[in-house]
Design a binder for these strands. Structure first.
Length: 310
DNA sequence: ATCCAGGCTCCTG
DNA sequence: CAGGAGCATGGA
């Protein structure tokens, strides 16, 4: 399915200003190298981030790039339907994705005083946790990433987009989008099984999509709940355990104080730094207490340091 | 080959 | 209710 083809592209733009110090080029470098970034287009030379996103029922191309005004960014939306309201909506999304409303100074102070975080965080001044642009996408990615290597998970995500996704065309450039939940919900399991999805992942992804498509799970409402209630709501889904729920809160919703402590890589990285060996989940939660109310930020930087091989 | 990877469900004892 | 097997696939 394609939207935008043959229709006039309209555009709207405005400048946006982050709170506190922002290193946007570093954020782009991160997104560019993150395994699950299948839907973003990053231009490191121009310093721009682009992706298609459905907002309020309209597929939009969102572009964020540098401004001539110091410490500011330019946000542009493009597509067959744009409006000032959609520009407002896009700005809210971009502020959430790049954590523009959070001054990183408070976390930086905490990290500077912490023996584990200091060496990890210090090289990345102005870096903030990047949120997956679409909550549904973060949920699907978390399920795909369960217990398999992330390279393979990436391949599964690519196939989901190729076979069932759709795209927005702007200026003859095709911008892919993840299939809508209702499309995945209606999918024949054989399609996914034929693409190396395991029986479990097939059932989980289709099942979660059914919950959303039917309205039994309302992602907008989920986003308004306190952390613990949102986690409980997610865990009732088949295929979603505590790790996945916490991952979604952190990476999909931008909650600042969640740590997926069941994560083996965190148990290894943080455990080794703290005690010299891998720790298990309860001990990792105990260690992470000192990072309240910034446990997601701490987690993000630990993962990022591994990704960048620092 | 063997182990394990950004886990979850289901079934034991 | 804690503990462990089974799941499916690919990379080290």
């Amino acid at each position: 399915m394609t939207t935008g083809e043959g229709q006039a592209t309209r555009r709207l733009a405005r400048g946006i200003r982050p709170t506190g110090v922002l290193n946007f080029p570093l954020a782009l470098t991160y997104v560019n190298s993150w395994t699950a970034s299948t839907l973003e287009r990053i231009d490191l030379v121009a310093g721009t981030w682009q992706r298609a996103l459905m907002l309020d029922g309209h597929d939009l191309l969102i572009t964020v790039g540098p401004s001539t005004t110091p410490d500011a960014l330019i946000l542009e939306i493009a597509g067959p339907h744009v409006s000032p309201d959609l520009l407002d909506r896009a700005e809210r999304e971009v502020r959430r994705i790049f954590a523009l409303d959070t001054d990183p100074a408070e976390f930086a102070a905490l990290a500077w005083a912490d023996d584990i975080l200091r060496p990890i965080v210090t090289p990345y001044e102005g870096m903030r946790p990047i949120v997956v642009a679409d909550l549904y996408e973060s949920l699907v990615w978390a399920i795909l990433g369960q217990q398999i290597n992330v390279g393979f998970a990436r391949r599964l995500k690519d196939r989901l987009v190729e076979t069932s996704g759709h795209e927005l065309v702007v200026d003859d450039v095709r911008y892919p989008l993840l299939p809508r939940p209702e499309v995945v919900a209606a999918l024949d399991p054989a399609v996914l099984l034929g693409q190396q999805f395991s029986r479990q992942k097939t059932a989980y992804v289709i099942g979660v999509s059914e919950e959303i498509a039917s309205g039994r799970l309302d992602l907008h409402e989920l986003a308004t709940l306190p952390d613990d209630e949102a986690i409980d709501e997610l865990i009732r889904l088949r295929g979603v355990g505590r790790w996945t729920a916490e991952y979604v809160l952190m990476r999909g919703m931008g909650r600042a104080d969640v740590i997926p402590a069941g994560d083996v890589s965190l148990q290894l990285l943080i455990g080794t730094a703290a005690t010299g060996a891998r720790v298990r989940e309860p001990e990792l939660r105990a260690i992470a207490e000192r990072w309240r109310p910034w446990r997601s930020w701490a987690t993000f930087f630990v993962w990022m340091s591994r990704q960048f091989g620092a």
